[in-house]
Amino acid sequence: MQGREEIKTDPLLKVENLKVSYGLGGGIFGRGGRIFNAVDGVSFSVRKGEIVGLVGESGSGKTTTGRAIIRLAPVSAGNIFYGGKEISGLSDRDFMPYRKRIQMIFQDPFNSLNPRMNIFQIVSEPLDIHFKEMSREQKVDRVKELMLTVGLEPSHLKRYPHEFSGGQRQRIGIARALASEPEFVICDEPVSALDVSVQAQIVNLLQDLRRRLNLTLLFIAHDIAVVEYLCDRIMVMTEGKIVEQGESEELCRRPQNPYTQKLIAAVPRF
């Protein structure tokens, strides 16, 4: 990794030899069944303030890697360190503070929001958990502030998800993720379901939020052109392994690994 402006700080997130395995059944109670390693020994680190892209095709294990960090997928082996402290072995109770510090934005703005909750309820739910001492008025103010941060009209507080477009819904998802004041945000294909012009808005918003809120982002996507545009560094995953990582421009211009070369060559150009 020969970055132009390599950030010389300790890694905020460090993943060592992470494995996530699933039994493929076969045999009663799964015994004697084959094991599928969705994530097969992945190691990487993310420094504070960086935007790191994780690219790969479907089935490469990129989403599972992201989910394993916040325990949405079971870690079979390996260690995860956050801020220098190992978090992979913690009890659910001891992991709670990290749920506040690490948040996630999901792909599908149509399915990831509860249709029966209004925007205030959706965005303030994390406040109920992580800021129990807040009064109702404080919560309303905070939600309005978050809506402004992500470019939504604060007076739309009482509206429901179906009243918003795809791009606006993704902004709601981002506001909810930001509610707990996280340091680290995992974005899982946040723009894949959006129209190109809306995609550009959200990508620019993420860039802007990184600066304003001093966030660190892990950006998981399959579109390498978006990743190159947004991210400082890129990691390429296939078949559960990271096969190449490097500074964005360099990696896209001179890919070393045959899989990365194939992936980049497959992007239609104009």
Binding site: E228, Y229, C252, I264, R269, F270
Partner: peptide
Amino acid sequence: CIPRLGMREKKL
């Protein structure tokens, strides 16, 4: 508004 490979300097 479409990101293209190798056009990192251009703002979307």
